[in-house]
Design a binder for these strands. Sequence first.
DNA 1: CAGCATCCTATTGGATACTG
DNA 2: CAGTATCCAATAGGATGCTG
Lengths: 129, 129
Amino acid sequence: MGRKPGGATGRRAAGDVFHSDCPARMVLDHVTSRWGVLILTALRDNDLRFHQLRTCIEGISEKMLSQTLRLLLRDGLVRRTVVPASPPQVSYGLTSLGTAIAEPLDALIVRIGTHARHIMAAQTAYDSI
Amino acid sequence: MGRKPGGATGRRAAGDVFHSDCPARMVLDHVTSRWGVLILTALRDNDLRFHQLRTCIEGISEKMLSQTLRLLLRDGLVRRTVVPASPPQVSYGLTSLGTAIAEPLDALIVRIGTHARHIMAAQTAYDSI
DNA sequence: CAGCATCCTATTGGATACTG
DNA sequence: CAGTATCCAATAGGATGCTG
């Protein structure tokens, strides 16, 4: 992403452009999508089954859950395991790649949590103008 | 976020629920919105003016830029500085709060960049099934 | 230059119903 | 249980034109 030479790695330089056709932008969109963040961080500590995820992530619909899971599956961030039983048990977990991505996401959420009060104060201050 | 006791800080526990009405969820949505991520990381290294941001972030429209900036301004993540001149110069930068939030985001982008090839390989593998 | 207002389309996403 | 399919409402977001 960014400067052409140097391959896929490294920091961006100041004033660098985020190319809209960059494949990384697409992955970023999946990962930072409304439900992508929550799914990835929910799976951070342990595998979960479909309906556990649905319960764990308040507000998500079945449609969005399966849709987003499929996206993350395709990106190789999430792994799907089927235990053939009756009824069959399907569980989802992070791949090593998924863990690598989920880590900074988790850090982000923790940080937002830490500063939540501060942020809400900023909001009311802004609104009172 | 998460377990009721313990205030705004701390890690989430396994199986914890992401409450949809949590103010942190709202901030998370702003921050991880399609353009929010890009704006915050673009401002990571130095302040930028409106049209510099517009150029720097490929694909963003004026509308979404000003709209998202207003949101981040309200959350206290971004600071707006006006130099009264003719024409007036307005520049945007991160607050200390914004920097704290942008850090893990930047880590995320770097990580996606690092694994980009790996991810694209996973995609084509998935599609070939 | 820095931006807001309006219009209109495309995409997101929820509710519901149904299948293996 | 673990989803898929369809329909419809809400929102995101682009194009354009205008203001200080």
